[in-house]
Amino acid sequence: MRYVSIDNVEPGQFLGKTIYSGNGTVLLSGGVQLTVYMISTLNRIGVTMLYIQDPLYEDVETDDMLSEATKQGIIQEMSSAFEAIRSGKEWNTQMIGTSVENLLQDVIGNKELLVQLTDIQTSDNSQYIHAMNVCLLSSVMGINMGLNYQQLKELASGALLHDIGKSGMTEEDEILPGLRTHHTWRGFEKLKNKREFGLLVAHVALQHHERVDGAGLPRGLAGDEIHLYAKIVSAADTYDRLIHPALPEEKALLPHEACEEMMAMSEKQLDYEVLLQFNRIISIYPNGTAVRLSTRETGVVVRQHRGLPGRPVVRIVRGEAGNFDVKELDLAQETTVFIEAVLT
Rank of each mutant, 00 (worst) to 15 (best):
A222D: 05
C135S: 13
E297D: 11
G22E: 02
K190P: 05
G46I: 03
V47Q: 00
R292P: 04
N92H: 13
E261G: 02
H130W: 08
G187S: 11
L329M: 14
L276T: 13
L308Q: 10
I39N: 00
T118L: 10
T62C: 14
E154W: 03
T48V: 14
R186H: 07
I232K: 03
T336Q: 15
L34M: 02
S283Y: 11
R195N: 13
H244S: 08
I74G: 03
S87L: 15
R2S: 04
D54Y: 08
T295M: 12
L50H: 04
Y272F: 11
F188S: 02
P255R: 05
H183Y: 14
D64N: 14
L152N: 02
G146E: 04
T170C: 09
E261R: 07
L191M: 05
V134S: 07
L161V: 02
I75N: 10
L275F: 05
V212M: 02
I129N: 04
Q13H: 09
D271C: 08
E112Q: 14
A332C: 04
D271Y: 07
D271F: 02
H130Y: 11
I96P: 01
E58N: 14
E83V: 12
D54W: 03
A156W: 03
H227M: 12
K89D: 15
E77C: 10
D224M: 07
T184Q: 04
R311E: 08
E68A: 13
G46K: 01
V274A: 03
Y149E: 08
L276F: 09
N43C: 14
P312Q: 03
F82L: 09
F188G: 01
P286A: 09
V301D: 06
P248V: 07
Y229E: 01
A332N: 04
D330K: 00
F82R: 14
A131S: 15
S79F: 14
W185Q: 01
Q94A: 15
E225Y: 08
S40Y: 01
M132H: 08
L247E: 10
I39M: 02
D163I: 07
G307A: 03
M141W: 10
M263E: 11
N193T: 12
H244N: 11
L27I: 05
T41P: 00
P312C: 04
Y285M: 14
M49R: 10
E58A: 15
T62D: 13
M169Q: 06
P286I: 13
L343V: 11
D237I: 04
T48R: 15
P11Q: 01
N8S: 15
L242I: 03
F188D: 00
K231N: 04
L117W: 10
L113N: 07
L103D: 00
I129F: 07
T335F: 10
A258M: 12
V204H: 05
Y128W: 12
L176Q: 08
S21Q: 10
G24M: 05
L276E: 11
S294K: 05
K89C: 10
T344H: 15
N8I: 09
L147Y: 05
I129Q: 02
L161R: 01
A156F: 00
V60S: 03
S123G: 13
L56P: 01
L155C: 06
Q333M: 12
H305Y: 13
I175C: 07
M169P: 01
S67Q: 00
N287I: 06
Q269S: 12
R211N: 13
Y285N: 11
V107L: 03
G22S: 07
D64M: 13
